Amino acid sequence: MKIKIYFKSFLIFIFAIPTLNSCVRNNDFQTPPLICNNRFDASTTTMAAFVATAPANATITIPATGTPVIFDAYVISSDENGNFYKTISIQDRPENPTVGLQMEVDRASNYADFPVGSHIRIKANGLVLGTDHGTIKIGSVDPVYAIGRIPASLFSRYISGVCNGSNMEIVPIVPTVVSSLSVAKNTKYLNTLVVVNNLKFAPTDLGKTYLDYVSGEGTDTDRNILDAFSNKSIIRNSAFFIGGKKSIPAGSGSIIFVVSRYNFTWQNIIRSLEDVKITN
């Protein structure tokens, strides 16, 4: 008798399982939509005014406490294709910027959180600002380097998206049209997005690829470019650039790039091959 009762109970339980599962499926907890919250208060200064305080050949540390130092900026770089390794280039306006800045960060895949055009807000308290190897940078206090990389674990303490409704605001970035490579070698364009027309790669680089390879491994590589006035400059690509095996194009056209400098060497950095608009 007891066996029959137990067996009957077992059958009831087995047949009840689909019903229970059905109930769970019909009442799944829905993931709430992401809500953008401005982490920092409104800007207390402009990016231009902030950058203007950077010493020419030294650094300063923004006091961690006291008056908040907060400014807005727009992301113009992307590490999605391997360039801009552990750096983010920003400028003060999406169009006709007056100043640019390089942020040192100890994290990769920054494009996933802050794609090109992201309107961001930076709270600089506790960070280091200054000129390092010819470029104005902002980063972390570091025992070895003048301006260190902001640790990934502290990144959100200093940078946040600016909301447009429930989402972070992302706007088109319009490259500044610069008439020549010579004109682009001006500190006012450092870490800003520009475009120069009527460019071509130097004849000595035709037939090569964007990267040089040693034992199958890419290396940091410079490729020479010329403008219509025979001015010269370089496109510099990281060893991690995923377009490295593509051939250098012949012909002429425009190139969009972020203006950079290492000590006295001006170098221009593309975000992807889409920035190179050269046709035969």
Rank of each mutant, 00 (worst) to 15 (best):
A42R: 10
D227Q: 03
T221H: 09
L129W: 07
Y111M: 00
Q91Y: 07
S179T: 12
P249F: 13
V194R: 02
I159S: 00
V144W: 08
T135C: 08
G134M: 07
A108G: 09
G126Y: 09
S78T: 12
R157S: 15
K123A: 13
T61Q: 14
K246D: 15
P115L: 03
H119K: 06
E95H: 02
Y189D: 04
F257A: 11
Y74I: 00
L154V: 05
A124Y: 06
S43D: 08
G126E: 13
L193G: 08
C36Q: 09
V196P: 05
T135I: 15
I256N: 12
L154Q: 15
D275Q: 06
G253R: 04
G82N: 04
I255T: 06
V162K: 04
L20A: 15
N198Q: 14
K245P: 05
L127Q: 08
Y189Q: 03
G66N: 11
V258R: 06
F114H: 03
P249Q: 14
A42M: 11
G161Y: 01
P33G: 01
V141D: 14
A239T: 08
S78N: 03
G66D: 06
Y6G: 01
G161I: 03
S230C: 09
I12D: 00
T187P: 01
I76C: 07
F229C: 01
T87K: 10
